[in-house]
Amino acid sequence: MRNWPLWEVFVRSKNGLEHRHFGSLHAADEEMALENARDVYTRRSEGVSIWVVESKHITASNPEHHGELFEPAQDKVYRHPTFYDLPDEVKHM
C-alpha cells in the first residue's frame, strides 16, 4: 500500500500577515492535511488560516541556476530609490 504523501503547510498567524511556510506533514487527503495541520502546527494559537499543498505540486528553482536566475538583478541599481540624486530640500518623495 502507498504511504501517506507529504504536504507543505502554510499558516497565516494573524490577519494582515502573509501565509508563511511552517513545515510539512503526512496526510492521505486534503481534508486530513488541513486537519492535521491544525492539530500539529496551531496547538498554541499560532494561526488564523491554513494552506496545505501536496509537496509534489511545488516546483522549486534549482540552486545550481542561482547565477542565471538571481545575479542579473544585482546590478540593476536603478530599480532602487537610492539610485536617484535629489536635493535634501525635497521632502516626501
Binding site: 500500500m1 502507498r2 504511504n3 501517506w4 492521505a28 487527503d29 486530513m32
Partner: peptide
C-alpha cells in the same frame, strides 16, 4: 496502525 493508514489512502484514492 497499518490497516488504518491503508484505509485512509484507499479512501482518498476512491474520492
Amino acid at each position: 496502525g497499518a490497516w488504518v493508514r491503508d484505509a485512509a489512502m484507499a479512501y482518498a484514492e476512491k474520492q
